[in-house]
């Protein structure tokens, strides 16, 4: 009997692991070790940089993350978000002023071996690269350092997803079939990251390129539980199964969001990836 129960439990576990739920499990564990390393990065001095990018005020509100139930609304405060990603050119300026972030100087714990891998040398962008295309092959640590030197921070996962609910007309377009379909089709297209920023239409808020160029780092990319009120490492089974089974209408419509969570779950903070960039955010009353 006991064995049977165990078998059923294993089966259940397997079901939600398979369905992509596995990334929830390790979130809290990771975030604590990440915080330790963060304090190390912050200790190294950063030279301030000036950026030209326009910041868009986002009026916060409550939103339903794709993984929750109806009752698990998450509050997002008003904040400012860069209208586009950080570009190759901007990141070049950053490493010139902060040589510890040059490719030949960066420490392996902060960026893996593919960091800025296509650059011709420490201060030369890749051949044929558009200087106004989003910078990629940057780690979470590098993105965080950049944001800090610009007097900003990375958006939280909830802030990012809150803005990602918008299409060109509505702040929340998640109920539109076309919204999800368009994103999923975009997500199938390769080498989008080579295109310059701001060539497509802005969304409801005036923010560009949420989906059509790169995946983006968020401050808490691997700690999905930080959005619920518990950070005690316990997994909310109901929420997981809701996300994992993806059977309800909301889940189907949020297929694109599901893909983003899957992508984030495959990352470690020192990873650098060909189609992964970032943009910065800021609290509104700073």
């Amino acid at each position: 009997m006991l064995e049977k129960k165990e078998a059923t439990m294993n089966k259940l576990l397997k079901i939600f692991l398979i369905a992509g739920g596995f990334f929830f499990l390790f979130s809290c564990e990771n975030s604590s070790s990440q915080q330790e390393i963060t304090s190390v990065t912050e200790a190294s001095e950063l030279v301030k940089i000036q950026t030209e990018v326009k910041m868009i005020p986002i009026k916060g509100g409550k939103y339903q993350p794709f993984y929750g139930e109806d009752s698990t609304l998450v509050e997002v405060n008003n904040f400012l978000l860069d209208e586009r990603q950080v570009t190759n050119n901007e990141f070049l300026e950053f490493v010139k002023k902060n040589p510890q972030w040059k490719r030949s100087n960066v420490k392996a714990i902060f960026a893996d071996e593919t960091y800025l891998q296509d650059w011709q040398d420490d201060e030369t962008l890749p051949k044929n690269a558009n200087p106004d295309a989003p910078v990629t092959y940057v780690s979470w640590f590098a993105a965080k350092a950049y944001a800090k030197s610009a007097g900003k921070r990375l958006p939280t996962l909830d802030e990012w997803e809150f803005v990602a609910m918008a299409d060109e007309e509505l702040a929340n377009a998640r109920d539109k079939v076309s919204y999800s379909e368009n994103i999923i089709n975009l997500y199938h297209v390769k080498f989008r990251e080579k295109n310059p920023v701001k060539q497509s239409a802005p969304n409801y808020w005036g923010v560009y390129n949420m989906f059509d160029l790169v995946w983006e780092w968020t401050d808490d990319f691997n700690s999905i539980m930080s959005t619920s009120d518990s950070r005690n490492g316990k997994v909310d089974d109901k929420g997981l199964f809701c996300a994992a089974s993806a059977t309800s209408v909301t889940d189907v419509l949020n297929y694109a969001a599901f893909m983003r969570y899957a992508f984030r779950s495959s990352l470690k903070a020192n990873y650098t990836v060909a189609n992964l960039g970032f943009r910065c955010a800021k609290d509104i009353n700073q």
Binding site: L17, Y187, K190, S266, A274
Partner: peptide
Amino acid sequence: SNSVMPHNIDLHAVNGPGGGAEATNVAPGK
């Protein structure tokens, strides 16, 4: 490295969580 998506593998011949899916969830280029 030119993949857009993360991928992993679940082998039905494996005895263990997710058939390996959890252990192999891998980002593009990794």
